[in-house]
């Protein structure tokens, strides 16, 4: 049952709905440290080492917000997990200690000569989240920097410098009733100090966290392999806990994405989750199923879930 504890199950209704499902978080935290910290950090660093161009991008305009985020996240790590992290700041001199990884980072705030990496790249190697900076400009929100190791079928290189609406253009139905405009206005209205959270879900075949568009040929083909028999092993519910935070000093928006995977065999242990997941997959509009890459195996997945619900009923 341990995999189920703390898993951010995303479905609140027994039917798929399309909405701005953001809620304000109190206390306002932008990141979370979980039991998978060490494993995921090892993977993050390996990806950054091997595919830096794919996993880190920044425009020069983002540098002040990068520094602000580095302070913010080191502070948050230390204040929320004092046994694992320590952070001290005396004037501009800063010292961050990561006791889990037995490492430390000493630097002078806003002095690039004291760090080897860009600030966002550096702090991103101490948190499980992917980190995105949306620059709040007079003509919209723009993706100006990101450290992205675990994308769900998108490419940082492709969207770098793009405007918020253009990035989301390919999401089916997003233009209906001016939906995307309202979301953009909502984000541009977020005031300093507030954190808004939403959960976004999809499905990954296998337990792979890093599924960028660039390696689609490697992981995408597994979608063809799902059968009613192996669905429990292969299929993983993928949930992104996404948080939006207005950077008080530089007025840009920090977007953090914490990705969780739960194997279907684990998910079906919880009867209410099984039922809710089934209803959502069943009522998913075809264009959304296509967008999320579920269409290929939806029939097999539904049959697998039906079999287990049937078993549950017989077992009682």
């Amino acid at each position: 049952m341990s995999r189920l504890n703390g898993f951010p199950f995303p479905f609140t209704k027994d039917q798929y709905t399309y909405s701005n499902n953001s809620v304000p978080l109190d206390p306002a935290k932008t990141i979370t440290v979980t039991a998978d910290y060490k494993n995921e950090l090892e993977l993050i660093r390996k990806l950054l080492q091997k595919h830096h161009q794919r996993c880190f991008r920044s425009l020069p305009l983002s540098i002040e917000s990068q520094w602000e985020i580095m302070l913010l996240l080191f502070n948050e790590l230390a204040s929320c997990n004092p046994e694992s992290f320590t952070f001290q700041k005396m004037g501009g001199e800063c010292l961050f200690q990561n006791h889990l990884l037995a490492e430390e980072e000493a630097f002078v705030f806003r002095d690039v000569s004291t760090i080897d990496l860009e600030p966002l790249d550096l702090v991103g190697r101490h948190v499980q989240e992917d980190l995105i900076i949306m620059g709040d400009r007079h003509d919209g929100l723009f993706l100006e920097a990101g450290q992205l190791c675990f994308p769900s079928n998108w490419s940082l290189a492709f969207v770098q410098g793009m405007e918020f609406k253009s990035i989301h253009n390919q999401v089916p139905g997003i233009q209906n009733d001016g939906f995307i405009d309202k979301v953009e206005r909502f984000i541009s209205k977020i005031q300093p100090g507030a954190v808004w959270e939403r959960k976004n879900w999809s499905i990954t075949v296998t337990n792979k966290l890093d599924t960028p568009l660039e390696t689609y040929s490697v992981w995408g083909k597994h979608r063809q392999e799902v059968t009613c028999e192996n669905a429990g092993d292969l299929i993983h519910l993928r949930v992104e806990v996404q948080r939006l935070f207005r950077l008080p000093m530089n007025h840009d928006v920090l977007f953090t994405i914490h990705t969780y995977l739960l194997q279907l065999n684990d998910l079906i242990q919880q009867e209410s989750w099984l039922k809710s997941f089934y209803q959502n997959i069943k009522t998913l509009p075809e264009e959304i199923a296509e967008y999320k890459g579920i269409s290929t195996y939806r029939t097999e997945l539904l049959r697998f879930l039906e079999n287990h619900m049937e078993k549950g009923r017989r077992g009682r």
Partner: peptide, 12 residues
């Protein structure tokens, strides 16, 4: 009250 900002700089 903690600071709010309705008059930010446009750093671009």
């Amino acid at each position: 009250s903690s600071p709010d900002n309705f008059f930010p700089l446009r750093t671009e």
